[in-house]
Amino acid sequence: MESAGILAGPMLRRVNTDSVAIWMATDRPVEVDAAIYVLDTLIPLDTATKTTSIRAGHRLFIHVVHMYGQLPTDTLLGYDLLFRVGKNGYHLASLGLIHKNEDSVTYDGLPYPSFFIPARAAPISSYASCRELYWKGDGTLVATNALLQMETRNRATRPCALSLLSD
């Protein structure tokens, strides 16, 4: 069965009150559209989508999906992606990426990957650096994932940003 061929992502790249950018890589050219929802009500927000795609290799396509609109702060939001490959269309759920196991791109049984935009100036964030091969332990990404699993719906303690920096 033909699918969207996702190799990496989707991953939030940048979020602010008037736009969201989602990054992903696929093994084939796809058209990508997106929607943002208020998760408490599943009401879609009025947004426009523009996707920029580049071919980075024989079977490597990089996509950045930009959604524009007025986004509320301190509100749990979710997004869904629609991939078109020829005449076929696939959502995250139909690709098996939203379900109740460790491969899901959602937390706490939410119907879409979630995020929020904090209204306060000093949000809770996580920081991760490159790992040396000799490093023992799980590292910051595993700890951030565990925290997100525990605090999915609690905007007061849930990290809203991850900085990936190098030494």
Rank of each mutant, 00 (worst) to 15 (best):
A4P: 04
G5F: 00
I6G: 01
L7T: 02
L7Q: 07
G9R: 04
M11Q: 14
V15M: 06
N16E: 07
N16W: 04
S19D: 10
I22G: 08
A25G: 09
T26C: 15
T26R: 02
P29D: 11
A34Q: 01
A35G: 04
A35D: 10
I36T: 00
I36K: 02
V38A: 08
T41A: 06
L45Y: 01
T49A: 15
K50A: 10
K50I: 09
K50G: 01
T52I: 04
S53K: 12
L60I: 08
F61H: 12
H63C: 06
H63M: 01
V64M: 09
V64L: 13
L71V: 00
L76V: 02
L76Y: 01
L77F: 01
G78T: 05
Y79S: 05
D80I: 08
L81W: 03
G89E: 13
G89H: 13
G89V: 02
L92R: 07
L97H: 01
K100H: 02
K100Q: 15
E102V: 09
T106Q: 01
Y107W: 05
L110R: 05
P113V: 03
A119K: 11
R120I: 02
P123D: 05
I124V: 08
I124G: 05
S126T: 11
S126H: 09
S129D: 14
S129F: 12
R131Y: 07
E132R: 13
Y134L: 08
Y134R: 12
Y134G: 15
D138L: 11
T140W: 02
A143V: 09
A143N: 14
T144M: 15
N145Q: 12
L147Y: 08
L148Y: 12
L148S: 10
L148T: 09
M150P: 00
E151W: 09
N154H: 05
N154V: 00
R155T: 11
R155W: 02
R155N: 10
T157R: 14
A161V: 03
A161W: 08
L162R: 07
S163D: 10
L164Y: 14
L165T: 11
S166R: 09
D167N: 12
